[in-house]
Design a protein around this nucleic acid. Sequence first.
DNA 1: TTGAATGCAAAATATTTGCATCTTC
DNA 2: GAAGATGCAAATATTTTGCATTCAA
Lengths: 154, 154
Amino acid sequence: MVYIKDLLRKKGLRVTPQRELIYRLLSESKAHPTAEHVYQEVRKTFPSISFNTVYKTVRSLEEWGLLQRFNTGENIYRYDANVSPHPHFICLSCGRVDDMDNFPDDVENYVRKAASTSPCEIKFVNLHFYGYCPLCRGSSRKINNKEEDNGGSD
Amino acid sequence: MVYIKDLLRKKGLRVTPQRELIYRLLSESKAHPTAEHVYQEVRKTFPSISFNTVYKTVRSLEEWGLLQRFNTGENIYRYDANVSPHPHFICLSCGRVDDMDNFPDDVENYVRKAASTSPCEIKFVNLHFYGYCPLCRGSSRKINNKEEDNGGSD
DNA sequence: TTGAATGCAAAATATTTGCATCTTC
DNA sequence: GAAGATGCAAATATTTTGCATTCAA
């Protein structure tokens, strides 16, 4: 893909084979990988790459707006090539982090509007949903590591 | 406050002066302190207390449902004696973490309902708002460490 | 008395920095 | 050639575990 090369150059970033692969893997992934995950994947193509290179690369890509970094509450940074704000789902059992597909776009604006009474200047909001993914729900893999049900009225 | 003693005993936790103070400080705080913050505060009363005792205590209190632990994206755990789910505000400039006071209660249910089309079993949702607090907004302390404005329509 | 809590130390995990060498532009 | 990227190593920051001693029930 020449596209990725251009995208990197457009941001003023130099194009190296490692960097190109790191960004390609992230842009093709829906798994919200950690730096370590990316490292393990990139090693398959570049066995001599260092974790440090992966780390610095994802930091650069984030700094230049090509990646989004976030943290689901497990104290590990995760990266996402989809830089527009969008809600995530975190499975309390297997730990997977997914995008909330089919989540209505207007909800975020609704939420932001609800926050507009705050004396703070809101820039963006993170919506993180926690629960059990289709593979874990109903299975014995479920664990109780947070309060059970809070919503009540829905 | 005898109240705290009873609360701890009711959960089957032993009452020690250190533990009582740790919980009292947290229940009286709105600052969402880290374990280190709590440690620094407790030392003023118990100079010989170890960080480890504070750490293990807040872990126990969380395990028994007396504290909520979360993480705002800075890879440090914060603790809150208000264990019911509620939205938080994180200042991009000074780092303070506040409750979103006056935030409409029904928004969380609205959000949860919007998530109900997901194949996942949602247990709870975290709403984290990022921006500039009243003290930092408009001041030179503002920094750009995330995308500027995303909402568009509000 | 007994099991849990405390305190000191060290291990584990993840992030970040330093620096010499190499590569892209 | 110069600025930036890479790779190896070590430093930082935080969380977590081990264990002997102390204390609450």
